[in-house]
């Protein structure tokens, strides 16, 4: 029964992991930018919702606010700065986003202090039982919202004119341009959506865990691993990848101890790259 409980916890947390990776995978797939500041974006979303919460706003109400603010933030960064180097060598965008990560992390430390913060609405600690299994309400909500946002992103990409333009730009930039797509605009919107998803992930992360200025240090690589496992072009597969990692970590911490969770998730990445390199790296 303990194993079932652990699996439930792993799946629920994994959904949130998937949401974290979603924005990174989208930006990576379309812009070919591995955004090393993605974890810092998640952190910013968490702080924003934390402060709105202390001002009396329910985090589920602030979630769309965090998404909107982070969208604007991402849009402006891409439009004004990243677009200047988006077509240059990958190292340039890596350097830029790494620098952005450092700046955001230490700005957060200066402004918000290094204290642990938790967004703690009444339902965050609540739970209910299904048979012998306890389901934590906070994690369940996080899971449901993560899956819903992945579905929304899927529909946006597959069913709308904007989504078509985003995919077309990712697949063949020259042809997209030839038929009137403005790549600078598409890139900025895509980066904005990636940041908005990070904002949503930060909100939910703040409900199920603690926010510090440094959470990006672990969340960026975690998102990176999941993006590779899930592939870069299907939001639903990325959430599935998040669940794989969530379950693997939960089972690991049960049988091997929590210190080994990162060993297992990165080990899993190596294993998948060795066994199925073609499938997992089918990039744009």
């Amino acid at each position: 029964m303990l194993l079932v409980q652990i699996l439930v916890n792993g799946v629920l947390l994994g959904g949130l992991y998937g949401l974290m990776a979603l924005g990174m995978a989208l930006v990576w797939g379309v812009l070919n930018i591995v955004n090393l500041a993605h974890g810092a974006f998640i952190m910013l979303g968490g702080y924003l919702v934390f402060f709105l919460f202390t001002a009396g706003l329910d985090p589920l109400v602030s979630l769309p606010i965090a998404m909107a603010v982070l969208f604007l933030f991402g849009y402006v960064i891409q439009r004004s700065l990243l677009n200047l180097i988006v077509r240059s060598a990958l190292l340039n965008t890596l350097l830029f986003t790494f620098g952005l990560d450092v700046v955001l992390t230490y700005l957060a430390q200066l402004l918000f202090s290094a204290d642990f913060r938790t967004i703690n609405p009444s339902y965050a600690g609540a739970n209910f039982s299904v048979g012998a299994v306890t389901v934590p309400v906070g994690r369940l909500i996080a899971f449901a919202i993560a899956v819903a946002l992945a579905l929304l992103l899927y529909l946006l990409l597959e069913r709308t004119r904007l989504g078509r333009a985003i995919r077309a730009t990712a697949q063949n930039l020259d042809a997209a341009r030839l038929y009137g797509v403005n790549p600078a605009q598409i890139y900025a919107i895509t980066f904005g959506i990636g940041a908005a998803l990070a904002g949503a992930a930060g909100t939910l992360y703040g409900i199920v865990a603690q926010i510090t200025p440094y959470i990006g240090v672990t969340l960026t690589p975690k998102s990176f691993v999941i993006a590779i496992i899930g592939g870069l072009d299907n939001p639903l597969r990325i959430v599935a990848g998040g669940i794989v990692i969530g379950v693997a970590e939960a089972v690991t911490s049960l049988y091997l101890g929590p210190t080994y969770t990162d060993v297992v998730s990165f080990g899993l990445l190596v294993l998948i790259l060795v066994l199925r390199p073609a499938q997992s790296l089918k990039i744009a």
């Binding site: 004119r161 697949q171 063949n172 042809a175 997209a176 072009d233």
Partner: peptide, 13 residues
Amino acid sequence: LFGRMTVAENLMM
């Protein structure tokens, strides 16, 4: 063409 998009989507582009 946009190789991984459908024929209809290519036309719509």
